[in-house]
Design a protein around this nucleic acid. Structure first.
Lengths: 154, 154
DNA sequence: GTTATTGTAACTAATACTGTTACATATATT
DNA sequence: AATATATGTAACAGTATTAGTTACAATAAC
């Protein structure tokens, strides 16, 4: 969802005169409630990926060149870090397996996390936006809507 | 948890006379309820990684050589597949972003899944067991307990 | 036949997330 | 200054998932 929004923000502010987009507009495109959008974009703001402005004519805009926003940045800003989670209850530490397995598992998990990070690092919002505009589904009407700065989907 | 259990099953059946281990014993080591264990091992059974036997003197045992059980096998047997999930509600398909973003995202997610799979594929239960036995925490008493086939942690 | 064990259904409790309402705060426009 | 428009955030309800638990039928060893 964050990726969707960032790509949309970029396209709209780039191709229309609009300097920012409101959570209401975004919510309509993503098909959810504006508060959900503000919550999510709050995380992106804390990570420095977007800016926001309160008050009339306010809204959200991208804070960095889209070539510099990787999906890893988005992932780190929105996910709490660990791809895999251990079991609720600690294993019995008296058990020889229980007391040593976690160390090994942590190393495997770190490796996996890193592998994912490498994949995400190599894709930027700029890449995605370009890919989308080449997609045949992204037709004339779409381009026109974005240029008009119309709330997408309305 | 599945990895914990498989490693334990291997060590115990390998180093003690026991041919199988009950869900009660395993539950004590993992520090949870026997039914939770039976549920999980049911998935591993369906995937062909363990065998089970009902009735007195029954229990669970490993169905394959541990060198042939990779963490990817365990992952596939227990996780429902996709590491990343899309948002609850479909994006608005009239929106030019909404209707094209998912295609791009799916390709990124597949790449990430594959990267994780590669990591997990290169680790086997045999590796893990060896690693554990080299761990200084895995001392004499541990070895003795396992050889005695004692419910670990009791 | 008795005992030990899996397989599974049914229920409770905990956790997390989405969606929603409400409202204080901030800011551009008039 | 007053008004209209936004964000930021707290609070709450609804939903889904999971762990843990109890109970019990089916199964197999002794």
């Amino acid at each position: 969802m964050a990726t969707h929004i960032l790509t949309g923000l970029h396209l709209i502010t780039e191709h229309s005169g609009l300097k920012s987009v409101t959570s209401d507009m975004i919510a309509e495109s993503v098909n959810t409630n504006p508060v959900v959008i503000r919550r999510l974009l709050g995380q992106l703001r804390k990570a420095g990926l977007v800016r926001s402005q309160s008050g009339a004519r306010g809204g959200f805009s991208i804070a960095l060149p889209v070539e510099k926003i990787s999906l890893l940045d988005v992932y780190r800003a929105t996910e709490d870090g660990s791809l895999f989670h251990f079991h609720y209850t600690e294993p019995n530490q008296i058990c020889p397996v229980g007391c040593t397995i976690q160390e090994s598992m942590k190393s495997v998990c770190s490796e996996a996390e890193e592998a994912v990070a490498n994949v995400l690092e190599n894709r930027t919002i700029a890449n995605l936006a370009a890919e989308m505009m080449e997609n045949p589904l992204f037709g004339e009407r779409a381009r026109a809507a974005i240029e008009a700065g119309i709330a997408p989907g309305s």
